[in-house]
Amino acid sequence: MTEPILQARGISKQFASFTAVDDVNLEVRSGEIHALIGPNGAGKTTCFNLLTGTLPVSKGSILLRGKEITGMSSDAVARRGLVRSFQISSIFPDFTVLNNVRFALQRKRGANLDFWRSENTLNRLNERAQGLLEELGLAEYAQMRAAELPYGRKRALEIATTLALDPEVLLLDEPTSGMGREDIGRVVDIIRKIRTGRTVLMVEHNLSVVEGLCDHVTVLARGKVIAEGTYDEVAKDEQVITAYLGTPHA
């Protein structure tokens, strides 16, 4: 349970003269739910983009299961078991809800270059896709166009699609952003349900979500790690309180 599955060693990201992420060290231990929190503009999403190869790092290295993944493209990182969701629901709007999930399952077929075969050959994946939809409470929407889903359900669909890849490490970028309380509750339940056998790293704004859910918290501010530990530990940290509230005597 304790060896780190995902490690960032001194990663930095420079945009022209602005340092978005500055020498960040991160250790995500296998089986934990790890939260990355911090005020707006702290570099959380950039950090995610670096970890998943969506953006190249300026400095430092990233290790997955002790193996270097620095500089790999995001699709290569995904194939190694580190899969992310996006802050803005990222779905395939013209596909049905079922086909969104099926498309993720399809990747395991391999090259997917068979242009001469009917797409009905993909129907054998339908049952698994339907199973995942059921797990996330989306079963009744299976045949609906994904674009027509309500916002909260789109988030759930994105998580279902991510889960379809059966990733060892799941990176969730603000899974509850822009949601009402009811939807937040559902997403938290989903994360609890899916954590078995997986490691989750999530960016979260909503501290009440973090409090009950996450085993380990890393706090970022202005691109730097300012605190680490359990939620209770970091919540008492002077620097964290300052970063969140602006004044030391809040």
Binding site: T52, A78, S90
Partner: peptide, 15 residues
Amino acid sequence: AIRNNPVRAQSLGYN
């Protein structure tokens, strides 16, 4: 899928 959302297709492991 690429036409729909290339970034997501890539993040799901498609080249």
